[in-house]
Design a protein around this nucleic acid. Sequence first.
DNA 1: ACCATCTGTGGGAGCGCTCCCACATTACCT
DNA 2: AGGTAATGTGGGAGCGCTCCCACAGATGGT
Lengths: 351, 351
Amino acid sequence: MAGHGTRGRSGGRPTLEQVAARAGVGRGTVSRVINGSPRVSDATRAAVEAAVAELGYVPNTAARALAANRTDAVALVVPEPETRFFAEPYFSDMLRGVGAGLSDTEMQLLLIFAGNDRKRQRLAQYLAAHRVDGVLLVSVHADDPLPDMLTELDIPAVISGPRSADEPLPSVDSDNYGGARSAVEHLLAQGRRTIAHITGRMDVYGAQRRVDGYRDALRDAGREVDELLVVEGDFTEEGGRRAMARLLAHRPDLDAVFAASDVTAAGARQVLREAGRRIPDDVSLVGYDDSVIARHMEPPLTSVRQPIEEMGRAMIDLLLAEIADRRPASSRKPGRRQTVLPTELVVRSSS
Amino acid sequence: MAGHGTRGRSGGRPTLEQVAARAGVGRGTVSRVINGSPRVSDATRAAVEAAVAELGYVPNTAARALAANRTDAVALVVPEPETRFFAEPYFSDMLRGVGAGLSDTEMQLLLIFAGNDRKRQRLAQYLAAHRVDGVLLVSVHADDPLPDMLTELDIPAVISGPRSADEPLPSVDSDNYGGARSAVEHLLAQGRRTIAHITGRMDVYGAQRRVDGYRDALRDAGREVDELLVVEGDFTEEGGRRAMARLLAHRPDLDAVFAASDVTAAGARQVLREAGRRIPDDVSLVGYDDSVIARHMEPPLTSVRQPIEEMGRAMIDLLLAEIADRRPASSRKPGRRQTVLPTELVVRSSS
DNA sequence: ACCATCTGTGGGAGCGCTCCCACATTACCT
DNA sequence: AGGTAATGTGGGAGCGCTCCCACAGATGGT
């Protein structure tokens, strides 16, 4: 009775068309207002905005996505089991940064875990369906096929630790080289003479950079680098123990150890204790990550802090820029695709 | 040169139409196969599936969402700051359960934080845009407008702790009543005679149920319930301290305390210690939640465990059923809309 | 006075699906 | 044999938006 057959299946959310009718303008104009196009007169814009408010119009995302071929969503892909995600503050800090960067955007953030084959399979499907406009990749192993898959699908992506010096993907990293240097320089300043380094997994680019920083710091201080003082670890506690045992065997005279992670430092500490070395009196110990472990260790561990939250922020900024670049009328000069954030040495009583 | 103007903007993902052509059938038929409709002959189905595989066809979700008016996504709404989300294992357990329930579905899970006004605003927009087919609500306060908003928008929702005995929304809960009973019965079995109860916030339905369980357990054992032994707390440590002080003042002869949360028990323990009472020798102590605190307390705390992960699972099951019910050809008798899962008493040395 | 330009604006043509009606075809009764 | 009811199948008509072309009217140079 009321009208002329509005046979909608939904409860009757207002559409663009209805807003247009209400405001006495055409569909195109309403669309322009909604999307903030400048080519609308002030009077018209006001009229449309009034109609939108009166009708309580909310754009239909599905229709928009279909017509414009975009989703207004990005995914944070975590190639780890949920357990690790929750256990490590790293992820929550990163998430906070990403969330902050997204908060004044219409973009939606999806959290996708790809910790096992099943989930990876689902993720692949998901990406193939182009259900996100872009992807944030964190803690990706060197041999992970994910980055290539994204390139293949032509989906913008940003990676959190470059996999090599010439990472093809835009990336965000903390200054591993500088962080390592500052740790070693700190030990030198304390008067330490024989400084060892337990590395991370050497197939991880960041670990390589830390070794570089260690070497250069010594060299620039006029010290020779003794290869017996550099032992490969793998970021784990057990690896730290093994490496420390080797170091004590080869160079029992060492008086400082710089470990590539706090966990590794914890392993090293244990072996040092068992060997009767006091920290920091006999041996200074410095870790990397400034994790909870560092604060709770006995004695509290000096460690290199990475600005994780800022890194999250930087990643999302990079990704949004990347997405914008691929959209039609945007041929702005692609800016820097690599961001490196400074680290900070947090000095505690282990050194 | 190659063809006759396929002016797609995307890289050229195959469409339903192309699959249909390839398989030599109509669009409708392909759609039926994709959606698993039974009204397709085996031969046709095989042909279509072959075409899908050859072309690497992946349905366009936006188009589907637009045409079918659904999104194939549900949201887990957390009305807390991210910090709490990561700090409490409750959420990660719940998330695991939800994830498991979703894993053999095409549904996507969104995690939405609504910890501050800004985020709540965004959430409201999000829901108004009907960007999810359903919502999972956890840790909702009694006066939160969110549930009503969802009802208003006609969005299926499931709530994790019913707000009252006649919660209108489908809900999942653990057996607060039974959990409390088992705690008290355990204390009785240990020969305790004067059992006090520090309640939770009494505007929380679960807290009320725990009091009911406490009362009935005593009554059924032929004990009279002394109202001086029931003191209101608020789930916090400070509340536990205050309540315990009151209890000691009124009934210094008590020999057992059942607290409505582990945190509350921790507060109570402190006051008991200060009053020179030994646990469990002088006073038995039982908590609720079986949180990390319980395991790390000195002495380890006997506590009532809730099956959080199973609750997550139950919630998503309920939600999926709810969503299915609202879809066209489904007039199945709406089943039970309330699920109550059993608790388990974890006995440790505090009792 | 004329034509070239620039601003706003309207609305057609799709985007790739699902829904559903119409139409075969085949199967099963009387 | 005729009828009725399943069973499969094709394809039109949208879903609500964005894109873009066409065009009216204002503006400005010659």
